[in-house]
Design a protein around this nucleic acid. Structure first.
Length: 280
DNA sequence: CGATTTGTAAGTTCGCTCCG
DNA sequence: CGGAGCGAACTTACAAATCG
């Protein structure tokens, strides 16, 4: 801990300028013992005397006091400049910590950040990709200031604003028998091996779509990577159900994919922006 | 979650000493 | 004797911790 306060420095400078604690006290609008005590505590912190006490004749600076006076004035000047300096987004070293859901980020966040930078040039953006639960935790502990994610019913932290809705769709390879269809039912999807995105909570959301229709899907593979899901589907290992729809519809290895509407009415996925509860 | 307790910092009052 | 500084005791304000 720093063993002195800016208030003590102010009283010291005032006493030096007025030549005593009584006049300094009047100038600072406090009682004389307050100034006296502040100087005493400052001297204890420094381990040497700042003034020679001349009873009934005020205070005279010691050589050490004269040396410290200039530094004290400088510190007070810097502290005034510090409190008056701009904060946050106008600062030279300003940055913002942004979190995004791993599968949602790549298709939306780059454009959002481009727009943000046009309005806030010079502000650095630091990215944190995580699952929904981790994003809530990062908001709670102050590691990120904003998160773009899906609302998967974990809304216990921060302020949440719905910014859009995404409908789930079926994904098949271009040579799959269903690829020529415009829409497909959950029952027809369940007749094929399912490539499931296995991220926490997202996984439960996709399975709940089948469960609410009274269908048990045949899970062939589970992966936490969206591109792995797309690659497996494109290579005929099964079909998938996703919310995120990257453009173009081609897998990493160049094979085309086809998105199909789901014929049943299924609940859309809410896209939300979360900010800390006390965000200005 | 609001009320209460506790600890700390900063201040005041009062009485004292010192000195011109 | 009056002005100035010091120290002890006390008050006030506030924040953190604790409790029901």
């Amino acid at each position: 801990m720093i063993p002195f306060t800016l208030r003590q420095l102010q009283y010291f400078v005032s006493a030096a300028e007025h030549g005593g604690t009584a006049q300094a006290a009047i100038a600072m609008n406090v009682s004389q013992p307050s100034v006296s005590m502040a100087i005493k505590q400052l001297e204890e912190a420094l381990g040497e005397s700042l003034f020679v006490r001349q009873h009934a004749q005020g205070l005279v600076l010691t050589p050490a006091g004269r040396a410290k006076l200039a530094e004290a004035r400088s510190l007070l000047s810097q502290s005034k400049a510090w409190i008056a300096s701009p904060t946050g987004m106008n600062g030279r070293d300003a940055w913002i910590d942004v979190g995004c859901f791993v599968t949602l980020g790549p298709s939306h966040l780059p454009a959002i950040i481009r727009c943000f930078r046009q309005h806030n040039p010079g502000v650095q953006v630091r990215l944190r990709e995580a699952n929904v639960e981790q994003l809530h935790h990062l908001i709670d502990n102050g590691s990120i200031e904003v998160a773009l994610t899906y609302d998967l019913g974990l809304g216990r932290s921060g302020n949440m604003e719905v910014v859009g809705y995404l409908k789930p769709h079926a994904l098949v390879g271009s040579d799959h028998p269903l690829a020529t269809r415009r829409s497909v039912s959950l029952k027809e999807i369940a007749e094929n091996p399912l490539i499931l995105i296995g991220l926490p909570h997202s996984r439960e959301y996709f399975l709940s779509l089948f469960r609410s229709a009274g269908i048990t899907p045949n899970i062939a593979m589970e992966t936490q990577s969206l591109e792995m899901v797309r690659g497996m589907v494109a290579n005929g290992h099964g079909v998938s159900v996703l919310v995120t729809k990257p453009s173009p519809q081609v897998s990493y290895d160049g094979r085309p994919l086809v998105s199909l509407e789901i014929s049943e009415t299924v609940p859309p996925q809410k896209v939300v922006v979360i900010t800390p509860r006390h965000f200005p």
